[in-house]
Amino acid sequence: MLRKSAARCTCPEMAVIPITEFLCGFPILEITHFHVTIVTWKCYLDSSAFFRRQPRLGNIFVFRRQKEGCKKKLDVFNFMIQSNDMQSNWPEQNLQVIRTLMERSAVYRRALAPIMLMAGAVGTLAALAGWKLKLDQPLNFFRYWSAISVLVLVPAFLMVRRQALQAKEPVWSPPTRRVIQALLPACVVGFGLVLVMVLTLPSLDNLTQALTWIMIYGCGLHAAGFFMPRGIKLLGWIFIIGAGALVAWCLGMHVRLPPDSPHFVMGFFFGGLHLAYGIYLYFTEQKSNET
């Protein structure tokens, strides 16, 4: 096959090279007392026409000659075969490039509306329950909302798994992996930082705890938004700016919110905003799938 390509080659670069001899199908450029120089073909993917194979001046290999007639030696032959394979696996490589590009561009859309609606409903109910139960101690507040986050994460995972199984697709797909990887640092930092604050700062109030959580969660959402529908990034910004504005308002106006207000703040952000985004997705997702 390579010999044929060489014979039909019209490449101007190759035309000036005096090819007198072939070694295992590769044109020999030069044979000296010490070296055998051969040229292999390089095939490349033309973006405007996939799988078009165009011969082009490729890699030049220089072999040291051990003694006369070494070109027939087994090691050289093996190398030729390997080189030939390397050059001729271009279809697999091209297909792999397409698959990789597809994976990278895939947007995570799995069960997003149901997850948001569920998270919003749980967040709102949890805020009401927390206010009713009067969980005002910082450690209790931390434990309560940590438990609520687990309560949201478990059914969310089950929803994603169910939808993946129904679609006969892997649960741990590349978009899922990227979203988790983007969310994880913010979740770990948020959880760890608030835990350290609760354990080391005796004067910590629940509002600071809630706002820290909200802002870091917003950062996580924004990071994950690069692999999710566009609205997620905006939601992340609403969390960050909303919490930031509340901090600025409290500090600027010297306002002290009532002790049970952190539950309502959490309820508004984790409940209300998720619920609103879930409703928005519920009415727009179907439409976008149809287009």
Binding site: I98, L101, M102
Partner: peptide
């Protein structure tokens, strides 16, 4: 080519 472009 259109599909490839949109897939990426």
């Amino acid at each position: 080519t259109i599909m490839s472009l949109l897939a990426a």
